[in-house]
Each structure stands twice: as C-alpha cells, then as structure tokens.
C-alpha cells in the first residue's frame, strides 16, 4: 500500500499537472502551490476522491509578502481524518487581481475563515455567500494586516466615544 503523501502528489500531478507550481516538503509539512484558476477543481477533487478524502479545511490564512513577483498568498490547511494526513495548499496572488474562488460550497466551515482573510487583507472570495467584515467594524475602510498599514492604525479611523 502506497503512502498517502505519494498518492496525493501522484494523483494531483496526473490530473492537474499543468497548474501545479511547486511541491515542497519542509520539516514534515507538505506544501503544494497551485494556480488559482484550477483551485475550485482541485479542491472538489481533493474533497471527493475516495482515497485522498480531504474532508476538513481546518483554516485559511492570508500572507502579505510584498515581493515584486507576487504580493499575497492564501494558504489552505487541508486535513484528511480518514488518512490522518495534513498538507498546505497555497495560492499566490498579484496585487492587481485580488479575486479568488470561494470554497464554501466544498467545505461549509470555511465561511468565517474566508471572511477573516477578507477582513484583514482585502482578498475577495468570489461566490462567498456573505462576504462581510468579521472582526473590524463594518465601516472600517482599511485592511489592517497589509504591510502598508501602520502598526498603530490610522488615527480617527475607528471613532472612540466622547469623554
């Protein structure tokens, strides 16, 4: 019987070989970077494939790298209960195009994590049923975890009650 890790890499390369950008393993964590056009297909495949069966998307994280070749990264922490196996699926985003397909219809539990990434980085999840801010006030105008946002915030952007 094959290792689940080898099986995952093989199956992904077989079905979506062109959209896989890199496969890296560092300190026991497998990271696969894919292109965002095929994200929805790959996630549907990972969720539905009987051998792989990634039935949990534990978390979605945004990262702001501010590099010349790409700006943001969205990391999906996928876990298969059946195989007791976890890996990270990464998408790179350019600053000019912050749209990414939502995977709420595949894993309903990522509704709030996607809202969190939207709240802090301004990444827009297309097809999300209710993409509102989750932590910051509704009328807040900035995305606070972006690198250009000052540590102490923008004075007056969140009003305090009168004294």
């Amino acid at each position: 019987m094959k290792n689940i890790k080898q099986k995952l890499i093989e199956k992904l390369k077989e079905n979506y070989g062109t959209s896989i950008e890199s496969v890296v393993e560092f300190q026991g964590t497998l990271t696969i970077t894919v292109g965002k056009e095929k994200l929805k297909d790959i996630c549907t495949f990972l969720r539905g494939d009987f051998d792989l069966y990634f039935d949990m998307c534990k978390d979605i994280v945004g990262v702001d790298y501010q590099r010349p070749d790409f700006r943001f990264e969205v990391v999906y922490n996928l876990y298969s209960i059946k195989n007791n196996f976890r890996f990270l699926l990464k998408i790179k985003l350019q600053e000019t195009d912050l749209h990414i397909p939502s995977v709420v219809d595949i894993w309903p539990g990522v509704n709030w994590p996607e809202r969190e990434v939207y709240d802090f980085f301004g990444i827009i999840f297309d097809g999300h049923p209710d993409l509102r801010r989750i932590y910051m006030p509704e009328d807040f105008e900035y995305f606070p975890l972006r690198k250009e946002f000052p540590l102490m915030g923008i004075p007056g952007s969140i009003p305090l009650p009168r004294k």
Binding site: Y135, P144, P150, G153, L160, K163
Partner: peptide, 15 residues
C-alpha cells in the same frame, strides 16, 4: 497590545 485595535488606555474615553 501596542496595536491598531486596542485603546491605549481607557482614560481616553471615560474618567
């Protein structure tokens, strides 16, 4: 919490 989300002392809005 020296940060954008935390009020730097409640004396900014109540005595």
């Amino acid at each position: 919490y020296r940060s954008y989300s935390v009020v730097q002392g409640i004396d900014l809005f109540i005595p």
